[in-house]
């Protein structure tokens, strides 16, 4: 049901170089917040981004970073924040999920498993440090709006889980 992002090929590498300020290993394209990027006449570029969560304080920074990156390549960017369609974790790419895991954040699982995990019903979320599934929910809310907090019973480390949002 959800639309694919529509990004002009020439702009893709530039946008991929911009990362989420709170998760520096994750490109905003892999996060799925860039919904479209068009080349217009006279080097003008129009980019549409959508927030992960309404109050995400990173959105202003992401908007500025996109402008800076595009200007460096000689473009004249305009960045628009759109709300429709609402962001979903389905838009996060496989590459993005891998980057999260390598960084120590457990990537979102499918919606049903996510619900089980966040209600503390099932041990499903894999510890990004040691790979154990012997993990436990500590808090439904984490260090940012998009994350929940878990702990691993095996390596005894806490870790963030990127919540599923559909």
């Amino acid at each position: 049901m959800t639309q694919e992002a529509d990004i002009a090929t020439e702009l893709l590498p530039i946008l991929k170089s911009v990362s989420d300020p709170e998760i520096p290993v994750l490109s905003i394209v892999d996060l799925g917040v860039v919904r479209s990027a068009y080349l217009l006449e006279n080097n003008k570029v129009k980019v549409e981004i959508t927030p992960t969560y309404s109050g995400c304080p990173a959105m202003d920074v992401i908007g500025d970073d996109i402008k800076t990156a595009l200007k460096e390549h000689g473009y004249e960017p305009e960045v628009k924040l759109i709300l429709s369609e609402a962001w979903t974790t389905d838009w996060m790419t496989e590459e993005g999920k891998k980057a999260l895991k390598d960084y120590g954040i457990a990537p979102p699982v499918d919606p049903t498993s996510d619900k089980d995990a966040l209600l503390g019903n099932k041990k499903i979320i894999e510890c990004p440090q040691c790979g154990s599934k012997n993990t436990q929910l500590v808090s439904q809310f984490g260090s940012t709006a998009c994350k929940a907090m878990f702990k691993c019973e095996d390596c005894e480390e806490t870790f963030d889980y990127f919540k599923c949002l559909i």
Binding site: P51, Y53, S54, G55, P57, F141, G142, T144, A145, M149
Partner: peptide, 20 residues
């Protein structure tokens, strides 16, 4: 700490909605 973070996260969502 967990409830503190939860409540401020909720506040942030509400402010985000208010801004829209």
């Amino acid at each position: 700490l967990e409830t503190d973070i939860a409540m401020t996260n909720i506040a942030l969502d509400l402010f985000g909605q208010t801004r829209s």
